[in-house]
Amino acid sequence: MSGPRHAAARKSVMQVLGQNRLRVWHGLIDDRIQMALDALQTSSAPDLVEDFANPVFRAITKPILGLHPSDLDRFDTLAPVLQDVLEPLLPMRQILQLQEVFAETMSLVSTGYARTEDAPTGAVSLQDHLQQNPPEGYDDADIAALVLVLYGARFQPKPYFGQCAALDPELAVGSATGCGGPGLDKHADRRNHVHLRITQIYLPACAKHPAG
């Protein structure tokens, strides 16, 4: 996607994912980060990506983008493949397989107004915003596809969250050593760092590059 169509999508996406527009989501973001830290601390074999980065990514990105799959497990299985839509010069066989995956994923997400029960008061998800204010030439299916591509393009969270989840070892192994109890308060600065990475780098990057 390029030219006027890309410009129209980018302008609309920035109205939701621009840094100044994300403030209304800060409470939800902090809550989801804390939930992931709690789960990480109680894990018997903590893994910063699987136990922290991936859950944080899914728990924050879905409500902000307005993704509410009808089959959550199936959606999470298919979602990592969505990033392949941005790969250039794929073999025809892989393109056909990708089309099947994309079609199935599209069927799992709503193409009307997204449910916004996760949205804080005053917050509007990206899909809701685009449905209410569609970019020129975009129908419901185009909007759903755009939101999915944004999710898929940034699906690999390790570059964004893995680095900022570099918590001190005693927190990562808290449950095993018995010293993890007060760890969350001690590492509040780390939690704030993750928050800043999400609101100032990751989500605004989606807005600046809506086609990936």
Rank of each mutant, 00 (worst) to 15 (best):
R93W: 07
P134S: 00
S44H: 10
P135R: 01
V124S: 08
Y113F: 08
V49G: 13
S110G: 11
L108W: 01
T61G: 09
L96V: 12
L82W: 05
A119M: 08
L40A: 14
R32P: 03
D47G: 08
D84N: 12
R58S: 14
Y113V: 02
E50W: 14
V85N: 07
D71A: 14
Q94P: 05
A114I: 00
I33G: 02
V81G: 07
V109E: 03
T111K: 11
G122A: 03
F52Y: 15
H68Y: 08
G112V: 00
S125L: 02
H68N: 14
R74I: 05
D84W: 12
L126M: 08
L130K: 03
P63G: 09
A79L: 09
S43W: 06
I95W: 10
A119L: 05
L48M: 15
K62E: 14
D38C: 07
I60F: 12
I33K: 04
Q94S: 10
E104N: 07
A45L: 15
A103D: 06
V49C: 08
R93D: 11
F102T: 04
P63S: 10
A36D: 06
G137V: 05
H68Q: 14
R32F: 00
L90W: 13
D76R: 13
V85P: 05
N54D: 14
R93S: 10
S107W: 00
M92E: 15
D31L: 10
V85Q: 12
Q34M: 10
D128Y: 01
E136W: 05
S125F: 02
I29Q: 01
M92C: 03
P120T: 00
Q94N: 10
L48E: 13
F75T: 04
L72K: 15
T77D: 12
V101P: 02
Q94I: 11
Q131A: 02
N133P: 05
D47P: 11
D47F: 11
L37D: 00
V124K: 03
T42G: 11
F75G: 01
A59R: 15
Q34K: 10
